[in-house]
């Protein structure tokens, strides 16, 4: 059915398409090309092949360190956030008094921006560490767990809301049947609730994975990579490569391409793995 004639294209699609092209499509394609060039601005590019990619990994250890730190951070954050969020969702779907108030409180940190979150947690963590004569930048371990705590505080509420929606979608008839058949709560959880909320698990994992990998504001505000770039995540490392010193723009762009491929592969792999476990109900 094609009743909307061609002339309406310019009204309905063109504004979005032009903005999308300028903000995303053209910069993306240029970015791919420039990662193989040496350049200062975007107009003075010289093709250099894979040199930027080689320099990204070999010039200093920053990029590899940042990649490794990001993966370690993401691993801890994804587990902590999803486990706690799921448990809270189970607790908040039992009809306990005050459910709405609890949900309101747990979700609230999500609305606060990354920069502000970073400074709030810097105050909290430094306040605790001060008693032992440390600060958050004296050891990379503090920054690591600080980031995990911060992201958990920020994202648990969001994922909890998604899990609650998933659990509430389970037909009560199935849960009743399980109860009548004498299933233990643990058995119900394993055989009914978890398989039924697989779509929620898929989306929550997807959101936590991509958010954890892309984290920037929180990283910048909490530690800015200190001490000695040890708590620098990939997004911040790329930013510093671009704007930190002249002559490294190509290297920054090459790092960005590697980063993009990494995020895309991990996200797609996860979608594929969890989608295949979703059941039709």
């Amino acid at each position: 059915m094609r009743y909307a004639s061609k002339r309406w294209f310019s009204v309905f699609v063109l504004p979005t398409f032009v903005a999308f092209s300028i903000a995303f499509l053209i910069p993306f394609i240029m970015g791919l090309y420039l990662s193989f060039c040496e350049f200062r601005t975007v107009s003075d590019a010289n093709f250099v092949g894979f040199e930027n990619y080689i320099r990204a990994f070999s010039a200093n250890g920053d990029f590899l360190n940042a990649l490794w730190f990001t993966v370690r951070f993401a691993f801890a954050a994804i587990i902590v956030i999803n486990v706690i969020a799921f448990l809270l969702a189970l607790m908040l779907t039992r009809g306990i008094r005050g459910t709405n108030l609890f949900r309101t409180v747990f979700f609230m940190p999500n609305l606060i921006g990354g920069i502000v979150l970073g400074y709030i947690w810097q105050l909290i963590i430094n306040g605790i560490l001060y008693n032992y004569g440390y600060s958050i930048t004296s050891n990379a371990t503090f920054g690591y767990w600080g980031l995990v705590a911060l992201s958990s505080w920020q994202m648990i509420g969001y994922m909890m809301v998604l899990y609650i929606a998933g659990i509430q979608n389970i037909p009560t008839a199935i849960l009743e049947a399980a109860r009548v058949d004498g299933a233990t709560p643990l058995r119900t959880l394993r055989s009914i609730i978890i398989p039924s909320v697989m779509p929620s698990i898929t989306i929550c994992l997807f959101l936590t994975i991509t958010n954890s990998f892309k984290l920037f504001d929180q990283n910048l505000a909490l530690t800015a990579g200190a001490p000695a770039k040890q708590t620098q995540m990939v997004a911040l490392d790329i930013y510093n490569t671009f704007y930190g010193r002249v002559g490294y723009e190509g290297v920054g762009q090459a790092k960005a391409v590697v980063f993009f491929i990494l995020v895309a592969v991990v996200a797609l792999l996860q979608l594929y793995l969890t989608r295949s476990r979703e059941v039709e109900n």
């Binding site: 999308f20 995303f24 053209i26 993306f28 240029m30 975007v42 980063f259 993009f260």
Partner: peptide
């Protein structure tokens, strides 16, 4: 599909070129 694709691309990928174009 390009719209969907753009959702997983990290901002750093287009950060430099986009701000120059802007």
């Amino acid at each position: 599909y390009l719209f969907v694709f753009s959702m997983i691309v990290p901002f750093q990928m287009v950060m430099f070129t986009m701000s120059k174009i802007a």
